[in-house]
Structure formats: C-alpha cells, structure tokens
Simulated assay, not measured.
Amino acid sequence: MKVAIFTDTYVPQVNGVARTLKRWTGYLDKKRIPYRVYAPDVRSNEEYGDSIHRFNSVPFWLYPECRLALPNLMKIKRDLDVFQPDLIHIATPFNLGLAGLHFGKKMDIPLVGSYHTHFDQYLDYYKLSFLSPFVWKYMQWFHQPLKKTFVPSLHTKRELELHGFHKIELWQRGVDHHHFSPVQSDDRVRKHFKIDAPILLTYVGRLAPEKGLDTLMNVAKNLPHVMNKNIHWLIVGDGPLRNHLQSVAPQNMTFAGYQDGESLARIYASSTLFIFPSATETFGNVVLESLSSGTPVVAANAGGVTEIVNHGKTGLLCTPHDHNSFTQGIIELLSDQKRLASMRKQARQEALESSWEEIFEQLLRDYKDAIGEVKLASFA
C-alpha cells in the first residue's frame, strides 16, 4: 500500500490535527508503508525528509495555525505519477485538500478524508454566523466524492449525518501513556513559573474566542477568596487573544506560551485540575492527555469532550458558557480531597484504554476497504 496525504496543517505547526497526522506518519514509517505528505511550508529548521513535500503558504485568517498553501500542481502531478499512490487521504478542505481532490478524481485514485474542525461553529465567535449555510454546502460538496470520511467522535458523526453526510467512519484518538503519565509530576513546574500556591489549575490550547476563554476568565475572578488565595492558574498556548487575556488576567494567572515534550507532560501531571471550557471540540486531544497524566478535567458538556470525560468519575462536565457552573464544579472538587484522589486514579485507568496501536490498525483496515478488493488482493 502507498498513501498520499494532503493537509493544510502539519508539524511543526502546533494543533491537534498536525500532531495526529505526525503520529500517523510515524506509524506508517514503523509499518514500512510508503507515503507522501503534501503540506504547507513553515519557517523551521526541521528536516522534513523525502516523504514530505512543502509549498509556500499564508495563514488562514480564521485559524492562523492552519495555513493556506499555494500548491504547485505540476510538481504534485509529477510526484504522484512517480509515486503511484493506492489511496489519497485529504485531511483539510482548503487549497491542498482541493489539490488532493482534483488529482484523486483525475487519476482515478480512491479518496478518503477526515473531518477535524467545526468551522461553522467558529463563525459564531467571529460574528460571521450568516456564512454557516455556505460552509456546510461547501463541506457537503467536498466530502461527497470520498469513499470514507473519518471523524474523531460519535458526536461529530451524528452532527455530520444531520447535515447529509454519508460513509462516515470513526477515527478516534489515542494518547502516549508513557509520555503523559502521573510520574511526570515534578516540582520543577512550580519553580520554573514561580508558583507558590498549593492548587494549580491549568488550561492547554489555542488562545482564541472559540475556546470559551471568556468563561475561564470569569471563573478565575469569581472563585471564593478563601479558596482563590491558594490557587494559581497556568495558561498554556498562544493565539490571537493572548495580549487581551494578559491585560485582564488576575495576578494569580501565568501565561506559559506554547509548551511541548517533557515540559508539557510535567505541567499536566503537576496540575490539580485541568480546566477546558471549549464547546466547539470534535474530540479534545488535550483532555485525553490530562486524564492520562492523572489530572481530572472540568470541561464543557459539549462536543467530543463528552465522550472522553466520565462525568463524576474522571472529572465534571459543566454547562457550556456558564461560568457559575464551572465555578461550582471546581469548588466541588477542590473541597473533597478524597474524591479528587479517586478521580486521579480513575482518570489514568480510563485513559489507558485509548491505544494508538489499535486505532491505527483500524485506520489501515479502513484504508484497505476503501481501496477495494481488486487492489487489496495484491497486498496478500
């Protein structure tokens, strides 16, 4: 099997889609399955290797972490003619995704795609809701030729079915249990960020309107003083709201910027609670990473996150956009240390059930099914 992946976001860009695709190509390397990735160029000293083809790009105004590439169609065509992929996987519906769609149709290569982001919901946060019907019409047109559309959660599957999508398959997410682990808990986090408070509440993600950070800021300002004096907030990530958030943040809040590797793992494991107010998630990779680290989650009762957080067992699901609901949830957990300790154990235990190996094996089976029995016979 040979696979061509067309995506408008890929490492070293920092987002869930890019990281998932990087892990997937790592798995293909492990299985010695040849692949090509057609992705935007970014300013980086990272060596990409022969399998990664980069193209000049500009930021997508609605989501700068996803870039609009300026693909060289002749270059792509020459490479596809040489590589002769058995399958094209389109990860994003923008310029490179359109290129993948074009060549899949023109060269009669089976097409599959994945749906990662509720862009229509993002429009609500940018006062562009009137565009939502057009976004759905475009997405329906884009996905119609695909043999399969992969989604990360049952919630997303149901959402797409309501909008007339067909041939939808689950491609869930796993977590690196060794990297994101309770054993990563380390005093270096508090020392590095000069945190003296015994309670550490953490958020990890993009600093943008669609992440519900207005709710988080209201929670930070409305927790009871007797409790708040023992709390410090650590905000991990970057985005268009960072300057504004810093200007209105309380004194017990630190902005850590992007963190990855061991540093991010230590932050998760050293936190008391993970607070995630976003109501627009198709899955929520950061939520699963927190649970794997043994840190309970207080999250919005919306989207794919509801399939990760076991309410009352590994965290709490709160009313979206309601800072009072989040505030009461945090108070409830911080006031019951015995329950919090039980949640830490349960969070880790349930996260261990999310295995990348099993998830990727299923994706390979779905690939082979999309390619069809005729070509599949040649793999035997």
Rank of each mutant, 00 (worst) to 15 (best):
residue 241 L to D: 09
residue 8 D to Y: 00
residue 11 V to E: 14
residue 92 T to F: 02
residue 256 A to G: 03
residue 145 P to L: 05
residue 124 D to Q: 13
residue 368 K to G: 11
residue 241 L to H: 07
residue 320 P to V: 04
residue 176 D to G: 04
residue 249 A to P: 12
residue 293 S to A: 15
residue 226 V to H: 15
residue 190 R to D: 06
residue 1 M to D: 12
residue 227 M to R: 04
residue 11 V to Q: 14
residue 136 W to R: 13
residue 264 L to V: 01
residue 259 Q to G: 00
residue 13 Q to N: 07
residue 379 F to H: 09
residue 49 G to H: 04
residue 344 R to A: 10
residue 70 L to E: 11
residue 224 P to T: 01
residue 294 G to N: 07
residue 161 E to S: 10
residue 281 E to P: 04
residue 230 N to E: 14
residue 83 F to C: 14
residue 86 D to Q: 10
residue 204 V to N: 01
residue 257 G to V: 06
residue 139 M to S: 00
residue 87 L to Q: 13
residue 225 H to F: 15
residue 92 T to Y: 06
residue 379 F to C: 07
residue 38 Y to D: 10
residue 161 E to K: 09
residue 92 T to D: 09
residue 281 E to T: 05
residue 241 L to V: 02
residue 41 D to Y: 15
residue 222 N to I: 08
residue 82 V to R: 15
residue 263 S to L: 12
residue 102 H to A: 14
residue 302 A to P: 15
residue 309 V to E: 02
residue 94 F to D: 14
residue 176 D to I: 06
residue 133 P to N: 05
residue 247 S to N: 11
residue 368 K to V: 06
residue 134 F to E: 10
residue 148 K to R: 15
residue 260 D to T: 05
residue 252 N to C: 06
residue 116 H to Q: 13
residue 342 S to L: 11
residue 218 N to A: 03
residue 258 Y to E: 14
residue 127 K to A: 12
residue 24 W to N: 02
residue 328 Q to T: 11
residue 129 S to V: 05
residue 216 L to W: 07
residue 186 D to C: 11
residue 92 T to W: 08
residue 83 F to Q: 15
residue 245 L to I: 07
residue 288 L to F: 15
residue 86 D to A: 04
residue 324 N to I: 12
residue 82 V to Y: 01
residue 2 K to S: 13
residue 292 S to H: 10
residue 48 Y to Q: 09
residue 79 D to Y: 00
residue 379 F to A: 01
residue 16 G to N: 09
residue 24 W to T: 07
residue 122 Y to I: 12
residue 102 H to T: 13
residue 343 M to I: 01
residue 225 H to Q: 13
residue 336 D to K: 03
residue 236 V to R: 08
residue 312 G to Y: 08
residue 189 V to T: 07
residue 354 S to L: 08
residue 240 P to Y: 13
residue 256 A to H: 01
residue 233 W to A: 00
residue 162 L to H: 13
residue 148 K to E: 10
residue 234 L to A: 04
residue 86 D to H: 11
residue 304 G to L: 07
residue 333 L to D: 02
residue 142 F to S: 08
residue 276 F to L: 02
residue 277 P to Q: 00
residue 40 P to E: 10
residue 253 M to K: 05
residue 2 K to D: 12
residue 227 M to G: 05
residue 242 R to P: 01
residue 159 E to F: 05
residue 274 F to N: 08
residue 215 T to H: 07
residue 34 P to R: 12
residue 164 G to T: 10
residue 9 T to H: 05
residue 356 W to T: 05
residue 127 K to Y: 10
residue 262 E to H: 06
residue 48 Y to K: 08
residue 29 D to K: 11
residue 76 I to C: 05
residue 138 Y to G: 06
residue 237 G to K: 07
residue 265 A to I: 01
residue 354 S to A: 13
residue 270 S to P: 03
residue 182 P to T: 02
residue 276 F to R: 05
residue 44 S to V: 03
residue 324 N to F: 11
residue 375 K to A: 12
residue 312 G to I: 00
residue 67 R to Y: 06
residue 134 F to D: 08
residue 307 E to Q: 13
